[in-house]
Design a protein around this nucleic acid. Sequence first.
DNA 1: CTGAAAGCGCTTACAG
DNA 2: CTGAAAGCGCTTACAG
Lengths: 366, 366
Amino acid sequence: MRVTIADVARLAGVSKATVSRVLNGRPDVDGATQARIEEIMAETGYVPSSRAVDLARGRTRTVGVLAPTLRTAWMPELLQGVADVVEPSGYGLLLHSAAGGGPALERFAASVRGHAVDGVLAVDPGAALDHLRDLHRQGLPVVVVDTVGARAPLPSVGADYADGGRRAAELLLAAGRLRLAMITGPAEEPTGAACADGFADLLTGTGAVLRASHVTEADGTEQGGYDAVQRLLRARLFFDGLFAHGDAMAAGALRALQEAGRQVPGEVAVVGFGDVPPAAYTVPALTTVRVPWEEMGGAAARSLIDRLRGEPGSDEPEVFETSLVIRGSTPPVGRIPGQRNRRAARTAELPAFRTSALATEPVPEL
Amino acid sequence: MRVTIADVARLAGVSKATVSRVLNGRPDVDGATQARIEEIMAETGYVPSSRAVDLARGRTRTVGVLAPTLRTAWMPELLQGVADVVEPSGYGLLLHSAAGGGPALERFAASVRGHAVDGVLAVDPGAALDHLRDLHRQGLPVVVVDTVGARAPLPSVGADYADGGRRAAELLLAAGRLRLAMITGPAEEPTGAACADGFADLLTGTGAVLRASHVTEADGTEQGGYDAVQRLLRARLFFDGLFAHGDAMAAGALRALQEAGRQVPGEVAVVGFGDVPPAAYTVPALTTVRVPWEEMGGAAARSLIDRLRGEPGSDEPEVFETSLVIRGSTPPVGRIPGQRNRRAARTAELPAFRTSALATEPVPEL
DNA sequence: CTGAAAGCGCTTACAG
DNA sequence: CTGAAAGCGCTTACAG
């Protein structure tokens, strides 16, 4: 039979209240009494029931994480960033994938309304945003991670996408590219607008041009990027620099350029966006605007947990800088502001793309 | 103030027990009473407290998922497969990353001992295996997902890695390659042994040879695969077919071969293992042995939930078939000899046998 | 420094 | 078909 606090109290000859005090590290317990209780707990292998603690305390020490899908290239980084903060803080991480659509969101809502979590960390909530805002108004701590440039009316963490666009432009200019082309993502994703604005912004007053004819929309996929470049080529448009608002589209662009016999980066320099793992394995490896997924996840988690602990927390969005990861799809250039060390990019920053995860760390007695 | 079952009971003029009966869909409630109670619940927006339900029922309807790290290329697929089964079943998914080492495992153990979860799904538990076995002995439902060929003394789900090795060999033979080379992963990972056995197995009696000199070990990374091929080339060893026990190493191999001016697949055909997203973005795109990550996750989740529901569940490992995904790193070949026969034969002996036909080229999204 | 008692919000025999 | 009561295993004022 499971050992309860009552058992420990009886064996130690004290009340449950005193055992509870020891359990919660309250200072007002006699040293000898505490030692005796701790000994009994160790002997019996007593572990408090989290179910009972939760009910009595009125909270669960669990945060809900809502993500539209787990099947995104940056999700492992982001999620690990979240877990690395949430778990050491003593909180559990209850994962909800909204991939199932309506029913999945209803389960999430039920979980929240049933107080299964103390707070919510939502990644790109999309249509669930209104619901989250209601919850937030009702006092539930909520933090949003925005990976698509959607400014949420809630505490949020995002990246400076416009600045990312600027960095891409800067690099292409530094490489001497003057006739530029751009592949945007789906129009619904605000990232594109921000990226495009930043890109165009930096171009003004330089000799470089990005004509409307050279801007084409794709669906965010590799195939979409491939098709987009084919459209540009078929229209006989000339360009020596290309910025794609996503690494997948950039990878497709590389494929189309290669098939067309265009040298990369010699004839066309290509810059992607995101720096997800596959970007490092294209040929040539993709130069891209790095978004700090893991840091963003960690910051959102920290912000949420601070709120759970009653610390204020700013309502201003926490915006992360992007940076350039220069690989082979752009020619070597001199130093550019915000550029990450090239050598580091090739070694330390190469994403750990391993097919196995055998634990190597020493494991304590459990 | 939060609405409780007592509030609903009072408003409906019945006892808490009757409200509880309606809540749990018990049939023995008067129709009119039930309707009245349901109306009140809707009006008040009543949602049962999961904390209280958990304590009263003695379970949490939550499964713990333990993964050594979330930062693996196949993790999104696997996790989505798990979530797609767990969530619609009405269970929550409490995610534990063991990435923090000892402390992380201790938190996991505390969570389990505190009965925060009804069962555990462990991905490649490694050193935590002993602890899981103890828990299983003590009656906790546990299912292991094995992605590295580590046969666990617990209910488990894995893939037929030896058969994957056979498929790779078969394809290289069909492409007419007779002088083969192999890059194995870290020796601690049993996958390698199984793959290698299957590979060698199929080669016996054919004209193809895999000499010990042509087998080299790498660390599972892209750079490791690159270095491995450089070693082979520097030793002036000839090979026209290469099998790497991981897509990352295969990607590195492609890079090294390209740098050395060897045509792929013309001079060297390359087959990887895993079919993780980056495999589709190498140039040429990587032919690889597909491991059904998502299905494996789903099967493990289903098995765990069946056990939680008291259904027996076999203790035999549930072994999934691998399949070939043929892309550009191997030359086009006709039907692969013996494939259909072998598959039919295996159907009979494997417990839960699912396979995708020779896959065409699914390009994962970044 | 410690204990008795109430309370967290449900479920579940047991009676009727 | 329904209710009163005990119980799940803790925490937390309130007294002393």
